[in-house]
Design a protein around this nucleic acid. Structure first.
Length: 454
RNA sequence: GGUGAGGUGGCAGAACGGUUAUGCGUGGGCCUGCAAAGCCUAUACAAGAGGGUUCGACUCCCUUCCUCACCUCCA
């Protein structure tokens, strides 16, 4: 399988990705708080996309930004009496802790707005020069009217947007739909610019950083659905006004995580943090949860869905160890159904069913004593590859040989009818998250991930 | 109001113009020294409502009702 197509928000159609090197810009987070599972979902989806592309032999370049200066960060810092940039820094650290635990591959680069101030100033200057932006008292604004394609991504028209907007008296922009590129201010933090001290507006950092690190046109620009407007629309206006070229070949947007049908958001106070879920359910369950639905659709957060994901993970662990201990070869094998699912718009929902089917198939054969080393080898190869692409991680025991010895020892005790002794060994292993599966043809040991829930 | 996505069996949630999605749940059974895990089997014959196209629609078209998201910060 060497082709993959992804649904493009701009055209509303699937688009094939042809390039050998796929350049991806993912809009990351604003660093004023811990991430929640909505963020995690988007990032996990892109992680799987990347892993899959790389498995196909493509090269990927992934750039994911941190918006580390913004009004919210400043507000939060003031409330806590700390420095805004230090606050950002600490949340970036926490971000990495969480997503390393989630086994998300690090992006090739994590550019930050505050380390690209000169690039931001440069692109604003160019926009002013090209008459797409103007300088006002309170700062520099983008002139939306000047960009004829404005609204092309979000399918909005300027007139309607105008009727809906409120005028902030602090802003002296010419048109209510115009948005800030540079906000003039003397309060900290601020940077010097040709238009006085201030800080960048939201949106412009992504234009500056994607242009700098990925070039004028790259393959995929992505993020959560809620970024379509205004964030991505404004990025298009900014970048394309400068380059006259399409910013991205494909716009890929991930659906929201909802709670009882409503979007998870700060204002509603229905947040589940990544860290919290990770502590309770572990990385693998959370990943399967995030991949359980099609990425374009919302996923409703429920404990039941997490339990289902956990059950699947438990079956996957058992299946993996069963195959590993039966197989004669341990190399990766392509699974067509799985690839078909992922290559058509990254249908992880379908791909997860393939995973479920493998566990079922193995369970069936093992329970009937029909699993032979050859079959096991093929299935092992498929499973191992799926686990890799999904970014799951099988837990490993400290001393596999010792467990193997105990298992053999217990077997002989059982054969001699010394069940009490045998059960002591089993209980000891169970206490260490080692489960013994007594199949017809023998016993397989499984090392389970320690998970707080259940 | 505009734009986009939806409304499927007890619940969650797919694909597809004509064949069992799948998972959970529920009933019964099997395997086992006992467990655990697993297996077998049964169970839903479902498509918001109303029209139309078709030999045939859950799937296409029209109408209508409802839900969600975005239109202000948001992954």
């Amino acid at each position: 399988m060497d082709s993959i197509e992804i649904h493009d928000t701009m055209s509303g159609t699937p688009i094939k990705l042809h390039n050998k090197n796929i350049k991806i810009y993912l809009c990351g987070v604003t660093t004023y708080d811990d991430t929640h599972i909505g963020h995690a979902r988007t990032i996990i989806v892109f992680d799987v996309l990347r892993r899959y592309l790389e498995d196909m032999g493509r090269h990927t370049t992934m750039v994911q930004n941190f918006t580390d200066i913004d009004d919210k960060i400043i507000q939060r810092a003031e409330a806590e009496g700390v420095d805004a940039l230090e606050l950002s820094f600490s949340y970036i650290e926490r971000y990495h802790q969480d997503f390393d635990r989630l086994n998300v591959k690090r992006a090739d680069m994590y550019p930050q707005a505050t380390t690209h101030i000169q690039d931001i100033i440069d692109i604003i200057s160019k926009l002013i020069e090209l008459k797409h932006a103007y300088v006002a008292k309170s700062g520099v604004y983008y002139m939306v009217e000047s960009f004829s394609e404005y609204g092309i991504l979000s399918k909005k028209n300027i007139k309607e947007l105008r009727s809906g907007t409120r005028i902030d008296p602090k802003e002296d922009k010419h048109d209510t739909v115009d948005f800030a590129l540079w906000k003039r201010t003397d309060s900290k933090p601020h940077w010097e610019s040709p238009w006085g001290a201030g800080r960048p507006g939201w949106h412009i950092e992504c234009s500056a950083m994607s242009l700098k690190h990925l070039g004028e046109t790259f393959d995929i620009h992505g993020g959560g659905r809620d970024l379509i407007f205004p964030h991505h629309e404004n990025e298009i206006a900014q970048t394309e006004a400068c380059t006259k070229l399409p910013l991205a070949r494909v716009w890929m947007h991930v659906g929201m995580v909802t709670i009882s049908g409503q979007k998870m958001s700060k204002s509603l106070g229905n947040i589940k943090t990544t860290r919290n879920i990770l502590d309770e359910w572990g990385p693998n369950t959370l990943r399967l949860f995030c991949l359980s639905g099609h990425y374009q659709k919302p996923i409703d957060y429920t404990e039941e869905l997490l339990v289902e994901s956990l059950d699947l993970w438990r079956r996957t662990e058992s299946c993996y160890y069963t195959l590993e201990q039966t197989a004669s070869r341990h190399d990766k094998v392509v699974c067509d159904e799985f690839d078909q699912a992922l290559s058509s718009n990254l249908n992880t929902h379908k791909a997860i069913i393939v995973l479920g089917n493998i566990t079922k198939e193995v369970g069936e054969m093992a329970s009937k004593g029909r699993l032979n080393p050859d079959t096991a080898s093929v299935l092992y190869g498929k499973l191992a590859r799926i686990i890799e692409i999904f970014g799951l991680k099988i837990s490993r025991p400290l001393d596999a040989r010792q467990i193997q010895n105990y298992t053999v020892q217990r077997d002989s005790l059982r054969q001699n009818g010394e069940y009490k002794q045998a059960d002591i060994i089993r209980n000891e292993l169970n206490a260490k998250n080692i489960e013994l599966l007594d199949y017809k043809n023998g016993t397989v040991w499984v090392c389970h991930e320690h998970i707080q829930k259940r």
